[in-house]
Design a protein around this nucleic acid. Sequence first.
RNA 1: GGGGCCGUAGUUCAGUUGGUUAGAAUGCCUGACUGUCGAUCAGGAGGUCGCGAGUUCGAGUCUCGUCGGCCCCGCCA
Length: 584
Amino acid sequence: MKRTHYCGDLRDSHVGQTVQLCGWVWHWRDHGGVVFIDLRDRTGHSQLVFDPTADAELHRRASALRSEFCIGITGTVRPRPEGTVNPKLPTGQVEVVVTELHVYSESETPPFPIDEHLDVGEDVRLKYRYLDMRRPALRDALLFRSRCANTVRNYFNQNGFVEVETPILSKSTPEGARDFLVPSRISPGEFFALPQSPQLYKQLCMIGGLDRYFQIVKCFRDEDQRADRQPEFTQIDVEMAFIEPEDIYQIMEGLMTTLWKDLLGVELKTPFPRMPYWDAMERYGCDRPDVRFGMELRDVGDIGAESEFQVFRSIVQNEGKISGICVKGGASFSRKEIDDLTKEASIYGAKGLAWMKHGESGLESNIVKFFSEGLQQKLIERFGSEQGDLLLFVADEPSVVYAALAHLRLHIAEQKQLFDPNEDKFLWVVDFPLYEKDDEGNPTPSHHPFTHPHPEDLDLFETAPLKIRALAYDLVLNGLELGGGSIRIHRRDLQYRMFKTLGIDEQQAQEKFGFLLDAFRFGPPPHGGIAFGFDRMVMLMMRLRNIREVIAFPKNQRAQAVMEGAPSGVEASQLKELGLRVKA
RNA sequence: GGGGCCGUAGUUCAGUUGGUUAGAAUGCCUGACUGUCGAUCAGGAGGUCGCGAGUUCGAGUCUCGUCGGCCCCGCCA
């Protein structure tokens, strides 16, 4: 039996045609006489009709069909009788009168219903992923993802990019996330690492003269999971030679515009706004601000220092920071609501949350008495506060202040519906610092050690390395990082200055990244690139909240594949061949 | 490494202050029904209340431990 149509495609125009359909029995409605079967494939479903007066034997066999039997049929498309048309369904104008029925295979009763009306526990869905895939939600996500990937490939092909496959068995590099390791049989005691990203390979492709590279590629990071993180995930990886940041912005804005137009029917406005890193931190408390709403942070360290409030004064004296946000209409928050906010702030290390309500006669709270009339007026002006608003303050070391207020801002905005959930606001965050302090206070690359410093800041290497800006950029959508990249260093002398600040001498550098440094001896072009979280992007486009909803076979929270049972133990002989011994 | 929420029928859930034989919806099975489309109607089967201790006359309910799931902090150049 050869399929002639997909179940979801039948329309008025097919009336009178003999068709052959294949698929799974979705719902069946047995009226004693006539039997209806909804036959489903990945495109949708059509109604099959079995009439006992037409073919008693066929009708008897149809009555025995059950959920998820896999069948094929031959039949004739006819318009539904008047009054039985179902306008809710794309195929609701017609039905198929079946003349032949073939059961490819029967099915046990599925462990959960194959429809969209019920949220099923994710552990069961993962165990029977192939059944979950028959459900419209996951099916549509995977189809959508496929179309995205197709659009991405077309876009880069049309713009002169070369798709290059880089190795999965690669070399472990000391920086960054934990590596997944693969033992080598031929070199006992030695290991490949799965790539955290094809970073060095794509730079080598630029040195190799490919000029424009892209790849939709798996990356692996052995870190703890989150709703938007998987141990193996997919990146849209891009690198270009002879370019400046503007070229990257333009190419990637073009990609986003194309994707949003082709897949969502939305016209995005370009160029996307750009915001320096320190602006983002000061105004939003994080490097990936959600700019769909205001409620921006304001520094009030100066006012706190002048106040009589000891908590604030001592924090300013100890090089701490005081910032706040103004919640419009927040004066109506109950004591409990403010307590809850305090709890939310404490997740990010804030030891307290100071607040003032803007009432009829000015600011009110248990700490207002420590602020003179003049200081209160300054606060009101700084936040543009009006009667009915609520001011919230966090005073702590800067990283805590930023993190706590950034979270409160998002938390309140979500709670109070302060933004349109259907709006998409893109933003480039630029001028990231080249270095940040590690746990011991030493400079460590905030992006990676091949990031090009801002040309205006080269004098700072020896005097104030932490103040050097990088030619690095992130693309942020609605408060989530879609991707990031940088212009790379292409001169060995600059690369060694970079390493020197990191405390890496020439010999160590050679050991770690020798192959790249060697390549830099042979005329490397100026180059740079970017990488996008593909899963995350598809998730955001579909307004989903979990990355697993757009991945065919994801790992669970504990990075396990529950369906196939991975990871798992292996045969002793396999270990022996690899020269490995597992500690009991 | 740390915090939070959760675990009861195949599935999704309810279960009062600790008190009789643990319920509902849906699915499943049987029967009825010729126009439904999340069909309807009647009947039926289906439970180690995650597991283990403890408190108690009595535990789905309280306590401790443990296992599992999800979310978050740390981590993720």
